[in-house]
Design a protein around this nucleic acid. Structure first.
Lengths: 149, 149
DNA sequence: GCTTGACCTAAACTTAAGTTGAGGTATCAG
DNA sequence: CTGATACCTCAACTTAAGTTTAGGTCAAGC
């Protein structure tokens, strides 16, 4: 009694529907090697259902700033192509986590910079003095000032 | 006795050095309206020092997935161009925070999807079964399986 | 007075990530 | 048999975010 569940095959149209990614983009991903398909007798692509999940990962990764090349490297660029171990997979997972953490750090940094800028007062006057610094300045005596350092 | 600190002017080369952004990119940002300069008598651009900070914000925002158009909209696209209030600025800040939070959520989502994928076992066998699903399957009886849903 | 370095403009080129279009095939419904 | 539909390929086009190239100006130093 086998516990294996064989893949269900879906067409490119269905994959597109399920993921919200256009057919042309899916073809493109395939050309780039991010996903793979088998062909049926009519030369139509057939994807195992699990590819839905791969495409979802691609989408989210992309929206969060990874390039397709990055994603491909993460998914395919394993140290040795002949024998890939569980260790390899774990290393890959670690690298990916690391990248995610870096990106989160950058977001937090951005938040801080903005808070700084808004906090310093120079961003809260009519229009941004940082961007439009040629308005009459110092006409009022009090009020927002430009920063030195 | 005035408390106003007048801006120090810097050249495009210095701005480039200070920010790590190439001169051509800075010209480009200026064409796009992201930064502004005055010209000296030799027609050379002069930026107030604070533009360093603006460029830094642009850089970080970009690295975290905002397009220049997004950034421009956030910085410039205020409701009414003639009279911009503190409320406008706060609304802008709120929108920006919101975007940042969305992006952070996406990163967390991505982390979860990956954890899921690795956890399910199908990613921890020689090479990825999700990506290379045509390997001999079920040869061993036990071991990783493909997922149904 | 000439060269060097930092700057200027405008236009063409580049890369990533697709989209669009033209022309062709296979299966199914009436 | 004749559309309609869903797919196929290949090539050209698009947009964003710059870079590169080519030709020109200006002030400084020797």
């Amino acid at each position: 009694m086998r516990k294996i569940i064989m893949p269900e095959w879906i067409s490119v149209g269905v994959l597109s529907e399920r993921t919200g990614v256009s057919v042309s983009a899916l073809h493109f991903y395939e050309r780039k090697g991010l996903i793979k398909s088998q062909r049926n007798t009519s030369n139509h692509r057939q994807y195992p259902k699990h590819v839905i999940r791969v495409v979802s990962i691609i989408q989210v990764a992309q929206r969060t700033g990874f390039s397709l090349e990055d994603i491909l490297l993460e998914l395919e660029g394993l140290p040795n192509r002949t024998r890939v171990t569980i260790d390899d997979w774990e290393a890959l997972g670690a690298r990916w986590q690391n990248e995610l953490d870096k990106k989160i750090t950058q977001l937090v940094e951005l938040k801080e910079m903005m808070a700084d800028c808004i906090g310093c007062g120079c961003l809260s006057l009519e229009r941004c003095r940082l961007l439009n610094p040629y308005d009459e300045l110092g006409e009022k005596g009090t009020g927002p000032m430009l920063m030195t350092k």
